[in-house]
């Protein structure tokens, strides 16, 4: 009630590069907001022509709780089914630590390989 500042999750869709859609997240990815990430991913996968890859830029994410993780897993499942390659970038140490504890680092290993191009974009 006091103190802890909760921020909503803003999701910006960047389609400037052909074949790739980037979801740029800013804010907290938690129980109340994680649904937005799932919805955004579903929307991307409905695009025609379908993108070859989806990049989720987590650089602007403050808090990411288990619901946030669950949303990431959802996105991973959805992209897997749709045959779209997934990349997760901008993951901070704390979130990486949580992924290690939960063993998700292994599950999401392919998505966690940094895509130099996307990483460059994220840095800009």
């Amino acid at each position: 009630m006091n103190g802890a500042v909760d921020r909503p999750l803003d999701i910006t869709v960047d389609r400037s590069r052909p074949g790739t859609v980037v979801l740029v997240l800013t804010g907290d990815c938690d129980y109340e907001t994680a649904g937005g990430l799932r919805d955004a991913a579903e929307e991307v996968l409905r695009l025609r022509p379908a993108p070859r890859s989806l990049t989720v830029d987590m650089g602007g994410v403050g808090l990411c709780d288990s619901s946030g993780l669950s949303a990431i897993v959802s996105v991973w499942q959805l992209t897997g089914k749709a045959g779209v390659s997934l990349r997760l970038i901008g993951i901070d140490d704390r979130l990486m630590n949580v992924m290690e504890i939960t063993g998700l680092d292994g599950v999401l290993a392919d998505a966690l390989v940094p895509d130099p191009e996307a990483a460059g974009r994220s840095a800009n």
Partner: peptide
């Protein structure tokens, strides 16, 4: 001790 979370991936270790 370390291991994979439950209920998401087909094989857990």
């Amino acid at each position: 001790t370390r291991g994979t979370l439950i209920g998401v991936v087909p094989s857990v270790t």
